[in-house]
């Protein structure tokens, strides 16, 4: 775990209520600087809501979001981007009328007021995520995989310290996933901390060093990939009440 390590982000007892529904219930998690932290959980667990609270699109009804030692829970999204938090959207949000290059340049402009600098940075980031040959194309012409890469590129162009990836691998075929996984790893290698919500388990297991499991709005488990997958509470959250016990029993029967 990150114990003793440098924590860049910590969510402390955050809750969010939508009318009668408690989407996130007293959740706490941390992200170690320079590491890849995964946030997993079954559908409807509250992962996207928790993400939106970290990036500032939803305000927590209770709790603190601490980034580099300061509580940012009340800051609007653009202030958090300036502070160094970038996010991608689960449902891609390209600037459809603009070219791929101009899309990425919007992100690059955050720390580069000059047009030429922003465009040069856009080319650089575009090539890094594998869009080098599509920079002049309209964003609306991109395939699903291309749009996911564009989300990644735009966020990366803001030079974030913390990158929040909301299901960037969802909707990609296995060979596209194999292409994007090393890109994510290479971003981490440049010193960017990554927190990812992901359903593609194979990628989560190979990329994430720390994992938090969210179910029905609560963090039910935390640990390394191997630890978390063996946790009976996690198995039950995904497969239903009593599933862990049944699996153990069946394994026992098979061996007997």
């Amino acid at each position: 775990m990150t114990a003793g390590g440098d924590v860049i982000l910590s969510v402390e007892n955050a809750s969010r209520r939508f009318g009668g529904l408690l989407a996130v219930d007293d959740a706490s998690m941390t992200a170690g600087r320079g590491r890849i932290t995964g946030l997993i959980g079954p559908n409807g667990a509250g992962k996207t809501t928790l993400f939106a609270m970290i990036s500032g699109f939803i305000e927590p009804t209770a709790g603190r979001i601490v980034f580099e030692g300061a509580d940012i829970a009340a800051l609007p999204p653009h202030r958090r981007a300036i502070a160094g938090i970038a996010r991608t959207f689960q449902i891609v949000q390209p600037f459809a009328g603009l070219s791929v290059r101009d899309n990425i340049a919007v992100g690059a402009h955050l720390r580069r007021p000059g047009r030429e600098h922003a465009l040069a940075r856009a080319d650089e980031v575009g090539r890094l995520v594998g869009l080098g040959d599509k920079l002049d194309d309209p964003a609306s012409d991109l395939t699903v995989s291309g749009r996911k890469r564009l989300e990644l590129a735009r966020a990366l162009a803001t030079d974030p310290k913390l990158l929040l990836l909301d299901e960037v691998l969802a909707g990609l075929n296995p060979s596209e996933v194999r292409d994007v996984v090393p890109v994510i790893r290479s971003i981490r290698d440049t010193g960017v901390t990554i927190v990812m919500v992901e359903h593609v388990m194979q990628a989560v297991m190979s990329l994430c060093e720390d994992i938090f499991v969210l179910a029905q709005g609560r963090i039910i488990a935390r640990g390394g990939p191997a630890e978390v997958t063996r946790d009976p509470k996690v198995v039950e959250a995904y497969l239903g009440h009593g599933a862990a016990a049944r699996l153990v029993a069946r394994e026992g029967a098979d061996h007997g």
Partner: peptide
């Protein structure tokens, strides 16, 4: 930069916010 941000708002306001606009 002002122009790039203005057009970004036209195209998608939430995405623009996330990019620090």
């Amino acid at each position: 930069r002002f122009g790039a941000w203005l057009v970004a708002i036209r195209e998608n306001e939430d995405a623009a916010k996330a990019l620090g606009v």
